[in-house]
């Protein structure tokens, strides 16, 4: 079966190659060139510049002492800095919590909202509202919710535990600070995954569901055997995007906890920001962002490998 499929695919590919003329390849180049030029100018070029910076002691405001080439000194210092490793593990912890929460909730909501018959537009906008709210505003609002001891969150917790669970210092406790950031982040951003899932769900032809209806498949069976397998491309996309976004956690932390208490919510991008934007050590900061890049690249490659084996099956 697999072999036949492969042979068929190869035949198709040969046919396609035959049909593609040189003229088409020129069109092809013209269509991808704008993107490549822009990516080079606005992403790759500054990135390469920061690689160069990472081996110097460059400061934000250029002083009278000339910038020196310092080799790998910045890298050595970063890798031997316990704060860097703490930030690293924090980001890992954050990702492991936020990815399932955010993507799972987004998938559930997308499924509910996709096949609505009533108030479709209204409900979709309602559930999308948190995502259109700027992060700065979101953090301000949640700061109020997390307030100690009378904030809404503490009121809720004490209400549902019949007063057994006392007020918790959400953002100031070493244990709760990160989960609090996770909840807020998932709330703010699930709309992103939800809208992509909705897009993915739109691409599944309705007839399949109609056929399943006739066969008497229930909602769960339809999801399990039709929706889920059809979403494979969307899932890959979402998993990769969400992972990368999670590893780049910054804004919430910078406004709410500044990495505290005791570094338990420090993240890698916050580490970069603190050394570069606050400490004004551009070279050191560039070196840490390079390390962050390599780290995410590594995780991405592992993910890609395991996903592509998954896709093949």
């Amino acid at each position: 079966m697999n072999l036949v499929h492969k042979m068929y695919q190869n035949a198709q590919k040969r046919e396609r190659d035959r049909l593609m003329s040189g003229h088409d390849q020129r069109q092809e180049l013209l269509m991808i060139l704008p993107a490549l030029i822009l990516l080079f100018l606005f992403l790759l070029l500054p990135f390469l510049m920061s690689v160069e910076l990472s081996c110097t002691n460059q400061r934000l405001v250029q002083g009278p002492v000339p910038t020196k080439f310092v080799g790998l000194r910045n890298y050595v210092r970063i890798l031997s800095d316990p704060e860097f490793w703490q930030a690293f593990w924090n980001v890992m912890r954050f990702s492991l919590m936020v990815i399932p929460l955010q993507c799972g909730f987004a998938l559930i909501m997308a499924n509910f909202l996709n096949k609505l018959t009533m108030m479709k537009s209204f409900l979709r906008s309602l559930y999308f509202l948190p995502f259109i709210t700027p992060m700065v505003i979101v953090t301000v609002i949640w700061q109020t919710i997390y307030q100690y001891p009378n904030g809404i969150m503490n009121t809720l917790v004490s209400f549902f535990s019949f007063g057994a669970v006392g007020p918790i210092e959400w953002l100031g406790s070493e244990f709760w600070a990160m989960p609090s950031i996770v909840l807020l982040s998932a709330w703010q951003a699930y709309g992103f995954q939800m809208i992509i899932y909705l897009g993915g769900l739109q691409n599944i032809p309705n007839e399949i569901y109609e056929a399943a209806d006739i066969d008497g498949a229930n909602g769960w069976e339809q999801f399990r055997f039709i929706t889920w397998p059809s979403l494979i491309n969307t899932n890959v996309l979402i998993l990769i995007i969400t992972t990368i976004q999670a590893l780049k956690l910054f804004t919430q932390v910078n406004i709410l906890t500044k990495g505290g208490p005791n570094g338990t919510t420090n993240t890698l991008v916050h580490y970069i920001y603190e050394s570069g934007f606050v400490g004004q050590k551009i070279g050191y900061s560039a070196a840490s962002s390079l390390l962050l890049f390599l780290l995410i690249l590594g995780i991405f490659l592992v993910q890609r490998l395991s996903l592509s084996s998954l896709e093949r099956n």
Binding site: F47, I244, F250, V269, S289, F293, I296, L297, F300
Partner: peptide
Amino acid sequence: LLPLIISLYIIPMESIMLPL
């Protein structure tokens, strides 16, 4: 190109903002 482009997404904006 595809892996290259995805890895470009990995670059945190905060780190290239100043050179840019």
